[in-house]
Simulated scan of single mutants.
Amino acid sequence: MGVETEALRWFQLVADGLTVTEVAETYAVSQPGVSRALARLEEDVGTPLLRRSGRVLRLTQAGATFKRHVDAFVNNLDDGLAAVEQLLDPGSGLVTLGFPLSLGTWFVPGLIRDFGRIRPQVRFALQRTAVGEPGAPSRLLLTREVELELTTARISHPDIEWRRVAVEPLLLCVPLDHPVADADAVELAAVAAEPFIMRRRPSGMREQVVDLCNAAGFSPVVAYEVDDLPTVRGFVGAGLGVAVVPALGRDVPVVLGPVRFLPLLDPGAQRDIGLACLTERRLLPAADSFRRFVVGGGANLTSASSV
């Protein structure tokens, strides 16, 4: 069997939704060349892997089965190539890192900056993880698209090692004219009668806020559900409710535009920041160095409390 590695990569891209034309443009080759390579791949495998549906190609049942093995093979091949590259130049390398949007505004940039002071030649390929079920690993980590994932909740999964690296306070966000806006700190019970702005499900942040309110003796009345923290802040600033939000590295209490952030005195008003990796996957040198940096106290350089 004379399967071409390039054909496998093109098959991956087409299977993931790119058109043959887009693949050809990405690799600066002709469209007929890509089509011929995919046809040779099907001939080598011995069955159709793709079927046409309008302008795009869809996986056949055999193609879906084959792709899982292609993904594993190409990922292992790329790991091998990267390992050799890092062996030849130990100070360099690439770290593939996933993280949620809320950590991308403060925590991740600080870690990469400070890690770069000791390993300036290491590069990062960054991917934002999608919001999923609380406590579940991202698809990016499970499919090996990233080696490491920073999370804002503890992950429980048999194939994943998760280490807490920092603790981030949760704050009460209120409009500037709110009765508690001038307080140094506040308990959630002080806003029990207020409407709340909440993240839309699924959201670990939402679940934690509900749990904190219940522990304070009330069930929050959800006035609006939104998709991200900037929108939460905007709705609070417009006087449409109050919200519990992560500190995002802010010194508190602090005023930001039309809102004020106040420390919460309620027990458990914090969230874990952790680092996750697959237990079955041996990290490449650059990724392992970054993991040891973060777990060993690199998070001290952020505004969150390290553990």
Rank of each mutant, 00 (worst) to 15 (best):
S102P: 02
Y27G: 00
L265R: 14
L176T: 13
N214Q: 14
S305K: 11
R164C: 07
D182L: 12
L248N: 10
A286S: 09
G17T: 05
P134D: 06
A185T: 09
V252L: 06
L38S: 06
A62S: 15
L170M: 10
G241Q: 07
R233N: 09
L171T: 12
N75M: 10
V221K: 14
G268Y: 10
R40D: 10
E147Q: 14
L111N: 03
A185F: 06
R199K: 13
R51G: 08
G132M: 02
G91L: 05
S53R: 15
R206Q: 11
P258L: 07
E161N: 13
P258W: 01
L140D: 05
N75H: 15
Y27T: 00
V74D: 05
S35D: 04
L171G: 02
L229D: 09
A193M: 00
V222I: 14
D44G: 04
E187Q: 11
V3M: 13
A136H: 10
G268E: 09
F124I: 03
D251W: 12
V131H: 15
V294A: 11
L13G: 07
G237M: 04
V95C: 03
R271D: 03
P202T: 08
N214T: 13
L103C: 06
R233F: 13
L150D: 00
S289A: 14
V74W: 02
V174E: 07
W106Q: 14
I118K: 13
I118T: 15
L49W: 11
T96W: 04
T279M: 13
A64P: 10
L94V: 15
L13V: 02
F290M: 04
L148M: 07
A215C: 03
L126Y: 07
G46T: 03
F290S: 02
A193R: 07
T96F: 01
L141M: 03
T26A: 10
R260M: 03
R282M: 10
V131I: 13
G33M: 09
D177S: 09
A136S: 11
D16W: 11
R282A: 13
D227H: 12
Q270C: 10
N76D: 15
P230V: 13
T65F: 14
L264H: 04
P253E: 01
P253S: 03
G297P: 02
G2N: 07
V174K: 03
G298V: 11
R9F: 00
V221P: 02
A28M: 08
A82N: 08
P32C: 05
L87I: 00
G217M: 01
V146S: 04
R58Q: 11
L97E: 05
H157K: 01
L13Q: 13
G104I: 07
D272V: 04
V146F: 00
V180R: 10
G135Q: 00
L59G: 10
P258Q: 08
R68Q: 13
G217Q: 08
V221C: 06
T60R: 08
H69V: 10
R40L: 12
L103D: 02
R199C: 05
V20M: 09
A15S: 15
A193N: 07
S203L: 07
G204Q: 08
A185M: 06
G46R: 06
P137Y: 03
T21E: 15
L212S: 10
V56R: 15
V74E: 05
R51V: 13
E207H: 06
W162A: 01
D89R: 13
L148Q: 09
F99Q: 05
P195Y: 11
